[in-house]
Write a protein that binds this DNA or RNA. Structure first.
Lengths: 333, 333
DNA sequence: CACGGCCTTGCATACGGATGCAAAGGCGGG
DNA sequence: CCCGCCTTTGCATCCGTATGCAAGGCCGTG
């Protein structure tokens, strides 16, 4: 109804009700020095005339944007949309906005980072498992706050919020052991990433502690259903294994299908299968995948704490998840 | 290495090399009135001193942000991450940034929209299937360009880019008919949405044209695996149906599992199952779901055209996808 | 050689809001 | 009743870039 509202500025409003532009600004600034009376009067007028502060101008002036950059690269792994969904909601609930940076693997990363730098985001949350090197992240951060999620980079001294991969991998090994399995295999996704190595090392170490045999350690090459499927075929054909830990759920689903339908292996009778993450599909009845649930809500909470906390000292936040035992390791009674 | 680069402004750079601030600005503005010689000199200096234009200030001045708001609500349906991924990449490739607005169903939508309005985004791309009413979108748009994706709102006169749902639904019906099926059912997701109605109406109409019987029309209530599973159980128990069209793939996957594992129905022998979208999982060997592929690349291309095109007249862009026939409707030979 | 026109460049100001500083007003204590 | 202090308000300026306008230089033409 108010056509003029399109261009209504704090000055316009101020003139309309006979106060100064500063007063209008203060009315919208929590904690500013202004009487409650005047503030109400201004807010009411703003309501009436359709005035809303221009965030861009505000950013320029405050040198603070309330914008968080979410750096993402692989949305096809269902774990990430789940995380992204809750993270973005929580950020928005705190009045922060999300600038999405989807870093394509093959693309001109430097170029994109430069673009990122120009937007004066308050912090970077790097969810992309790979693609960016630690130095590139530091470069892009340019002194701003950075949180790496599930992507440890100790050398760069960056704050990390991560699921406790080692704890999870050990829990899986323990679970296999408790089931009476003794000959277990591991399937890695992107070999060489810290996350993959952590899960692998902890798993293998615990197997040894338990006196179990590591029958195979396969590098699937990527985190995908197809890669898991290939690894599953390999394992099923080779034989001699009674339990497999896939480095994440999406791999495990592929492996499960490969074992059952590609090799005629019975799961869990012949081979018990476990994954990592607890994506929604893991709970689908056809799969019913035993897995280690990442504590997404806790991760998100911690990320928010780090972003808005006072202390910017790099720190490592490890959060434990918990075992979700389903039918891929335990036959129905 | 340049500590000063943190606060280097166009003025600083200008002073350093003895030109005016305007010259610096022009050096970074394509098509601006500046000699190639001076531009090169300035760009070189910028490089050397680590100067980059401040986008925020630029936005304020140009009244144009190069930021596109992506309004999203259901990232758990794997179709959306796929779309989001390609859309965000394409936007970034054109130098546009994505501000992510995740509208939570139960949340305070108005509140969020107000936040959105304050960021002077150049355009809104509404991917969320529901949640927002057309009026709310118009309100949030505030005269800016809006593209609805797969969400037709004829009454509001908004530009829409959508897959041709009717074409797809007819193709499914034709496919069933060609297979010799005569008693088909339809399973809707979110009943009441235009998309759902379009698929339903076209499917039902074509069944009639083909002389086929509609044995059931179930409203699953939401687009989820679980809802599809429930619908599948219902259909399997009722009997009398030899083909089912689920309104989208995620429903179909649930339905497929319900039919096979919950009811002991053979798919495709007893009942042929088809979905809509062609999400990655539809191609997993366990499902091998016949479906109608949404032309995502074309959709994305068209969205970009609309956003950056000169003509802002509301228009309806319908793009055809194509049938992807897999084993859920055709037994292996 | 003189003049008109184009190309470059700088000057000044706009974009819209935040904030340090000073002035004005209100209140309580002595 | 007067003074001083605290609260409230306005003024002026800043944030960093874009751009209309005018001045200056250069070129070509008559």
């Amino acid at each position: 109804m108010n056509e003029a509202s399109k261009t209504m500025t704090a000055r316009d409003l101020a003139r309309l009700i006979g106060v100064s532009q500063s007063a209008v600004s203060r009315a919208f600034t929590p904690g500013a020095s202004i009487s409650e009376d005047l503030r109400q009067r201004i807010l009411a007028a703003a309501q009436r005339f359709g005035y809303r502060p221009n965030v861009i101008a505000s950013i320029l002036s405050r040198q603070k944007s309330d914008i968080i950059a979410l750096v993402v690269s692989d949305l096809r792994n269902p774990y990430y949309p789940g995380l992204l969904e809750r993270l973005s909601r929580s950020l928005q609930a705190r009045g922060l906005q999300c600038l999405l940076f989807n870093i394509a693997p093959g693309s001109d990363v430097r170029q994109q980072l430069m673009a990122l730098r120009q937007y004066h985001v308050d912090a970077l949350v790097v969810i992309s498992a790979t693609v960016l090197s630690a130095e590139e992240i530091v470069l892009a951060a340019e002194g701003r706050r950075v949180v790496l999620v599930n992507r440890i980079a100790p050398e760069a001294r960056l704050t990390t919020v991560s699921c406790d991969n080692a704890h999870g991998a050990r829990a899986i090994a323990d679970h296999f052991h408790a089931l009476g399995r003794r000959r277990a295999a591991f399937v890695a996704g992107l070999t060489g990433t810290v996350v993959s190595l952590q899960r692998q090392n902890a798993f293998v170490t615990r197997l040894a502690e338990l006196g179990m045999t590591l029958t195979a350690s396969i590098g699937a090459g990527e985190y995908s259903y197809e890669a898991g499927y290939r690894a599953g075929l390999e394992l099923g054909r080779a034989g001699g294994t009674d339990a497999v830990f896939f480095a994440n759920d999406i791999l495990a689903l592929g492996g499960l299908d490969a074992l059952r339908e590609g090799c005629g292996v019975r799961v869990p009778e012949d081979i018990a299968v476990a994954g990592f993450d607890d994506i929604p599909m893991a709970n689908w009845p056809h799969y019913s995948l035993t897995t280690y649930r990442q504590p997404i809500d806790e991760l998100v909470g911690r990320i928010l704490d780090v972003i808005s906390g006072g202390d910017a000292t790099p720190a490592l936040h490890l959060l434990e998840g918990d075992m979700v035992v389903r039918r891929s390791t335990t036959p129905p009674v």
